[in-house]
Amino acid sequence: MPDPKLGSAEQVGPGIAETASVLDEVPTSGALVHLPGMAPASPTPTHDPRRSDVDEWGRSEHMRELARRLYGPIYRNLFRAEWSGLEKIPAEGGALLVANHAGAVPSDAPVIIHGIEEELRRPVYGLADSMFKGVPVVGTLWSRMGGVVAHPDNAYRLLKEQGQLVLVFPEGSKGPGKTYQERYQLRRFGRGGFVEIAMRAGVPVVPIAVVGAEESMPTLVNIPPLAKLFGSPYFPITANQLLFGPLLGLVTYLPAKFRLRVLDSVTFDVEADQPRYSKSRIMEEAETIRQQIQEALHDMLRQRQSVWRG
């Protein structure tokens, strides 16, 4: 939060600017802890039990804490996630985390968010398509877990005004939509919107290469007509479904070893807050970042002895 512009956050409400510093202190007392980006609390300093800790983005640190406790064993024992280069993620201030996206029901997002929140004790907000938000229960839980609709305004406010960590998968649904034969072959990075957002917000892009998600839920075939019928971006038949059944297979992962490599952060020497940025520059930067992640993936796969043991 060194950004002096954050002074304006005071107008939005207390609690926003202190996010990172609050998270630095491990909560020791009380069940309900006042945590990041909380909506302006009631004027009384004592905690009002009627008020939840849901922040303006819908994220609840209390529920995240619960989720981290439940997800910890999966993270440690099933995926045995190992990070390298975590120190390249800024300890404070906004940064846009960019990673490859894979697995029919992607397991990379929770692994990345869990890992960073545990290691850096900073909240991570995940930008995603709005289709989650429209699904009852799922949408609400998704937003309590830190999911935010991928709208440029949301990204700007999180990154620039509140100096948060924001995770985005530029491949979108094309990443998880690919089959096992195409594993670790990065899809197009959209139209480079993530670069434009980082430029406008004046924050670095931190690329992350993830190995393991592809094998945790491999898609054997895709059935586009069914996808069309259900209005989903893809309709996979996964190995997990063959093993565990059509429904249980959607939530049960294979024990692939996760390795995550944080690459050097990318800064763009352009002025923040411009109304427009050169489209060719944006596409060029996006492609460079894609290449870097792709090369890192190849390097990690060269070193991998086994899908399961890493």
Partner: peptide
């Protein structure tokens, strides 16, 4: 009010 909305609408959103 839709699923695709930003969390905060500015006057020119």
């Amino acid at each position: 009010s839709t699923a695709r909305d930003p969390v905060w609408f500015r006057e020119d959103t």
